[in-house]
């Protein structure tokens, strides 16, 4: 974890999070983000954004645009998750930008595959889609190695249960910023295909 000694000491002493610099760097301050992370997020998501708990998403290496958008979703637009809604209430725009800058720079670790037998199907759908079902290849938007871009989130190394849960939330209309593209893909995937894609994502470094 990349927390400077004075900041860590301040945190330990109970001064929760230092006030943002008067003129914060564009795109967020990763050093301050590390402190916010340790104070508010690390209990579930790990100090470096690599979750150790099934169902809790990995955030290390995530695209900053996506992180900021989704944090706002929890705070203001009803993205479901009781703990996240509560935590996001206390996060300022600056906190979110700083967190995103910190997490984008953390090295992701591979997720945990739970059903290896599904990996081949998941890889096929990720790279080729399912033309018969109108499912496009996932790599078209999320890139070949699942790293995402400024426009689409990183999906590589993600927790299997979390990914499956998100597919269901898209179909149920419970992702507030759901784009029609992802909603359509989630609707067109079968349960087995969705699970298989989730397993393949977890396997990506």
């Amino acid at each position: 974890m990349r927390v400077s000694v004075p900041l860590a000491a301040a945190l330990f002493a109970g001064a929760a999070v230092p006030a943002p610099a008067a003129d914060p760097p564009a795109g967020g301050d990763p050093t301050r983000g590390a402190v916010v992370m340790a104070a508010r997020c690390a209990g579930c998501h790990g100090t470096d954004g690599n979750s150790r708990t099934r169902g809790i998403p990995n955030l290390a290496g995530q695209q900053p645009e996506y992180l900021v958008r989704e944090l706002n979703g929890f705070k203001e637009d009803g993205r479901e998750s009781a703990p996240m809604q509560a935590i996001a209430q206390d996060l300022s725009d600056q906190d979110m930008a700083d967190l995103a800058a910190f997490l984008a720079g953390q090295a992701p670790v591979r997720g945990k595959v739970t059903k290896p037998a599904l990996l081949a199907l998941g890889k096929r759908i990720y790279l080729n889609g399912n033309p018969a079902g109108g499912v496009p290849a996932c790599d078209g938007c999320h890139e070949t190695r699942g790293e995402g871009s400024d426009r689409f989130p990183r999906v590589a190394g993600q927790d299997v249960d979390y990914t499956v849960a998100q597919f269901r939330l898209y179909v149920a209309g419970k992702r507030p910023y759901a784009r029609k593209v992802m909603l359509t893909v989630a609707e067109r995937l079968s349960e087995k295909e969705a699970r298989a894609v989730a397993e393949y994502l977890a396997s990506l470094p």
Binding site: G129, P131, P136, A137, C138, D139, G140, C141, S149, R151, F152, V181
Partner: peptide, 12 residues
């Protein structure tokens, strides 16, 4: 860049 959303079917 805008074409990224099309690549999943129409290929890179």
């Amino acid at each position: 860049a805008a074409y990224r959303v099309c690549r999943g079917c129409h290929q890179a």
